[in-house]
Design a protein around this nucleic acid. Structure first.
Length: 531
DNA sequence: CTGGGGAAGGGGCCC
DNA sequence: GGGGCCCCTTCCCCA
């Protein structure tokens, strides 16, 4: 009997152990499943956010088009980014004004460039007119000119932009995607408001107006229509400072977004600036190391992670480069009067230079701070990028890499996958951080290389070197046919068509051939405009 | 005046 | 890092 009791006791013990083990196993499974489930939920939430943002963008676009259609007279948009510095050497101050009689505005219509005098070509302002709140706001894109650069009075030109002419080109020349950036600028009343129609997220931009004399806020008309002036601020000619004067909270409804801690972070981002003017307050904590880079990235791309309404951002000489899905909401309902850098010009200065990284939520610990480390000096030919690898390695997790590759933005250079470095804006992969840095200047507008003779700035050393031939007059490329010399080989190559009579660009509609694509484009616009 | 064409500049990307 | 290539733009000339 005693043996039986002992046996039962042992059985009970074994059962208990087994039960405990089973419970533990079940708990483990539940935990695992729960984790997976949470992950799926998170992914679905991300997808929902993405869809919502797309919807918001669509709504914004519709609202913008409606506003633009209803108030075309107040809109001036210009596509002056590409080639905008052209006039710096040629001395051309050009004003591109939307031709009269065009009462409706389309994105593919001629955009107007109102080029003020005395502004730097690097100071490009991007603004999106969002909705009716932009009433009375002059939306235009200004081309800026360097300080000492030649200045001339502007003329008025018009042009057609955005016409899908590539499809009409010679079938032998496949259409190529247009990768040019859309850079627009909004200038207007400092207290003007640009916000989304949904008004769910607004970005308050405090305009820093550089002016002389009277209060810039007292003359809104001048602000809206006056010539923009880029003050040749010594030592800060390319100053890009982003001040965040109030606490910025990255907040999404689901609460899984980045949290910007700190109550009063003062964030400054500089690409090229006088080291003495660097104001760095990077208290804001952005935990990118926890795999939230995707959130940051997606939010940055989708809507710029615009902050709660009412928060104030002080933007000093910020150039905003708007990508296709860049933030469209700007709420400039508060004004910050900055120290004027004006030097004798009576026009108020309204210049924002902001890269997308100036997003208030990510400005602090963003990998873009690698550019701070660069601290490109005008005479520097070798901007530092010592932190690039580390930063990008830290902030980009495997999901980003996989996404980058799946989205076709994979590495464009050689090297193993582990050594890829990805652009934080477009996820393009590169084999080394230096290339990422160079590439990201496309997005940030960083131009570390400055010509000492004309103060033109370039994103790459090669560009500066090539440009300096303009001053030196060196023309190493000679035409074997006419002994004409060129400073660039591609120009020589183009010139050789004069002798060869090569006309590779044929109109697929009338068969007329042209030596250059632009001629075909113009021809098709004028003669086959319906296509 | 307009359109075609040459020249020359900046920008971007690939290698 | 730099060369090559291409794109785009602007200025200018000329028929």
């Amino acid at each position: 009997m005693a043996d039986c009791m002992v046996f039962h006791t042992q059985i009970a013990s074994i059962m208990e152990v087994l039960a405990n083990a089973a419970v533990a196993e079940i708990c483990k499974l539940v935990d695992d499943d729960y984790a997976v489930f949470r992950l799926e939920i998170t992914q679905r939430q991300k997808e929902n956010r993405t869809l919502r943002r797309k919807l918001q963008l669509l709504e914004l676009k519709v609202a913008r088009e409606r506003v633009l259609a209803s108030r075309p007279s107040s809109v001036k948009i210009l596509d002056g980014y590409r080639g905008m510095a052209r006039g710096h050497l040629t001395g051309g101050y050009r004003s591109f004004v939307k031709p009269g009689g065009h009462n409706t505005w389309r994105d593919d219509q001629p955009i107007t460039v109102d080029e003020g005098s005395g502004t730097s070509p690097q100071h490009v302002i991007v603004i999106e007119s969002a909705d009716a709140e932009a009433a009375g706001l002059g939306v235009k894109q200004h081309r800026s000119e360097g300080e000492e650069g030649p200045r001339q009075s502007g003329d008025i030109q018009t042009g057609v932009v955005g016409v899908p002419y590539e499809a009409m080109e010679d079938p032998t020349s496949a259409p190529q995607p247009r990768t040019r950036r859309s850079v627009t600028e909004v200038s207007g009343r400092p207290d003007s408001v640009l916000k989304s129609e949904t008004d769910t997220k607004t970005l308050t931009v405090t305009h820093r107006l550089l002016h002389t004399g009277s209060d810039h806020r007292s003359d809104p008309e001048r602000l809206g229509l006056g010539r923009l002036v880029c003050p040749p601020a010594p030592g800060s000619e390319y100053l890009t400072v982003f001040h965040q004067s109030q606490r910025m909270v990255h907040s999404h409804g689901d609460g899984d977004a980045l949290d910007a801690g700190g109550d009063d972070p003062s964030c400054s981002y500089t690409t090229e600036m006088d080291p003495g003017n660097i104001s760095l307050g990077l208290e804001t904590q952005t935990d990118l190391s926890r795999g939230e880079w995707n959130q940051y990235s997606s939010s940055l791309y989708a809507e710029g992670s615009l902050d709660k309404k009412g928060e104030v951002i002080v933007v000093d000489e910020v150039t905003v480069k708007v990508e296709s899905d860049a933030p469209l909401t700007w709420n400039a309902d508060e004004t910050h009067v900055g120290e004027g850098h004006s030097q004798g010009n009576t026009s108020d200065f309204l210049d924002y230079r902001e890269s997308i990284e100036t997003n208030v939520n990510v400005v602090t610990h963003s990998p873009l701070h690698v550019f701070r480390d660069c601290d490109p000096v005008s005479t520097s030919m070798a901007p530092s990028d010592s932190h690039g690898r580390v930063l990008f390695s830290q902030v980009l997790n495997s999901n980003d890499r996989a996404r980058a590759q799946s989205q076709g933005g994979g590495a464009t250079s050689g090297g193993s996958e582990d050594k890829w470095f990805f652009c934080m804006f477009c996820n393009k992969g590169f084999s080394c951080p230096q290339k990422v840095e160079i590439h990201q200047r496309v997005h940030t507008g960083g131009k570390p290389f400055s010509c000492t003779q004309c103060h033109m700035r370039f994103a790459q050393a090669r560009d500066l070197k090539r440009h300096q031939r303009v001053h030196t007059g060196v023309k190493p490329y000679s035409c074997p046919q006419c002994e004409k010399k060129f400073s660039r080989q591609d120009h020589l190559k183009m010139h050789l068509k004069v002798h060869t009579g090569e006309r590779p660009f044929a109109c697929m509609h009338c068969g007329k051939r042209f030596s250059e694509r632009r001629y075909l484009r113009i021809h098709q616009q004028k003669n086959h405009s319906t296509l």
